[in-house]
Simulated assay, not measured.
Amino acid sequence: MSAVIAVAVPADLRALFFPSPVWSSLAELGELRVVADGDGGRLGEPRVLAELAGPADVLVTSWPCASLTGPVLDAAPRLRLVAHTGASVKPYVGHDAFARGVRVTQAGAAMGRAVGEQAFALTLALLHRVHRFDLALRTGVPWADAKASAPPRHELLGCPVGVVGASRTGRAYIELVRALGGVVTVADPYLSEAEAFDLGVTVAGLDTVLRTSRVVALHAPVLPETRRMIGARELALLPDEAVLVNTARAALIDADALLAELRTGRIDAAIDVYDEQPLPVDHPLRSLPNVLLTPHEAGGTVQARARGGGIVVDELARFLSGEPLRHEVTEDLLARVG
């Protein structure tokens, strides 16, 4: 009997994660149950997800999905694996699923290059004050005044760049920064000297990285020890006219402290992640000229989405053939992340 694979991914996202060749590979693994086009926007309702997952051995999820709590799991007694097309699985699975022997895997590795590239693009934009010039010209500032509206601009060549977290995205970012001549120092207690040598970076403590870098890019995971690791004291260590890039997680920074620091105009920042999402239309960050904002889309390239679907298919194939999963999230690991 072939496995039943429930695909709880709305049609628009399904087209991105599973282009034709990837979808064909998925279909070869078992009998597919796909959410109806009209129900894609209702996957956040436990009843809709339960109905789809009912006879499934494997459930493929995306971010609109409801959590797999008792009622959903009760409706899917055969469920053995959840494969998430994104990175963070904490909103979707918890103790209930693990207690019933459901295993979990995710496709976060697919986004490393995309997030690294966006962080790199934001770095260049901030260094060259592109965001300030764009705002000045769009809001009718006279030409000469627009030219004078930004702090001094800098090239990446020889620029001291601090990276907080040598994660997958951090390493992709480091590769790009070093290719253009940036001089990188990393704060990461788990990065060995040998790994640092291979990456071409120096290792230092967080305070040193903040104090000595013109650019600071955050690429750390949210763990108990990294939650709100950047507060008012840490932000004050940044040099005047430094730039801060956060494409990682909002919880790494004290949002109130960051807003207060940005309101002084002393530093510039590019932000892709927020404590409150969607970011309210009247949020004060939206009106600051020294802030460049994107709507939590750093990992959303066409290529990253297709890679994510490919990882899901590979993980399902490994699971169904009894091979070890390469991207499994255990309950112990899930408990450590924010």
Rank of each mutant, 00 (worst) to 15 (best):
S2Q: 13
V4K: 07
A6C: 05
V9Q: 01
V9K: 08
A15Q: 05
L16S: 10
S20P: 15
W23P: 01
E28V: 09
G30I: 12
V34M: 14
V34F: 01
A36I: 05
D37N: 14
G38C: 07
D39E: 15
G41E: 12
P46S: 09
P46E: 12
P46N: 10
E51R: 13
L52R: 02
A53E: 11
A56E: 08
V58Q: 08
V58M: 01
T61E: 11
P64F: 00
A66K: 04
L68R: 02
L68C: 02
P71G: 14
R80Q: 15
V82S: 03
H84V: 03
V89T: 09
K90Q: 11
H95N: 09
D96N: 04
D96R: 03
D96W: 05
R100Y: 12
V102E: 14
V104E: 03
Q106E: 14
G108C: 01
A110L: 06
M111F: 07
F120T: 01
L122N: 12
T123E: 09
T123K: 09
L126G: 07
L127A: 10
L127I: 02
H128S: 05
H131C: 00
L135Y: 00
L137G: 00
R138G: 04
G140A: 12
P142E: 06
W143K: 12
W143M: 11
A146F: 04
A148W: 10
P152K: 00
P152L: 11
H154R: 13
L156M: 12
L156W: 11
L157S: 13
L157W: 15
P160F: 07
S167F: 03
A172Y: 06
I174G: 08
L176P: 15
A179K: 15
A179S: 15
V184P: 14
V184K: 05
Y190R: 09
E193S: 13
L199N: 04
T202G: 11
T202S: 15
T202R: 15
L206S: 11
V209P: 08
V209N: 01
L210S: 00
R211Q: 12
S213C: 05
P224I: 00
T226Q: 11
L237H: 04
E241S: 07
A248F: 10
L252G: 10
D254K: 13
D256W: 02
L262T: 02
R263N: 02
R266N: 02
A269K: 07
A270P: 13
Y274K: 02
D275E: 14
Q277K: 09
Q277T: 14
P278R: 06
L279Y: 03
P280N: 06
P280S: 12
L288R: 08
P289N: 06
P289H: 07
P289D: 08
P289T: 00
V291S: 00
L292P: 07
P295Q: 02
A298N: 11
A298L: 05
V302I: 04
Q303P: 11
L316R: 04
R318F: 11
R318D: 10
G322D: 12
L325M: 05
R326K: 07
V329W: 00
V329K: 06
L334W: 08
A335R: 14
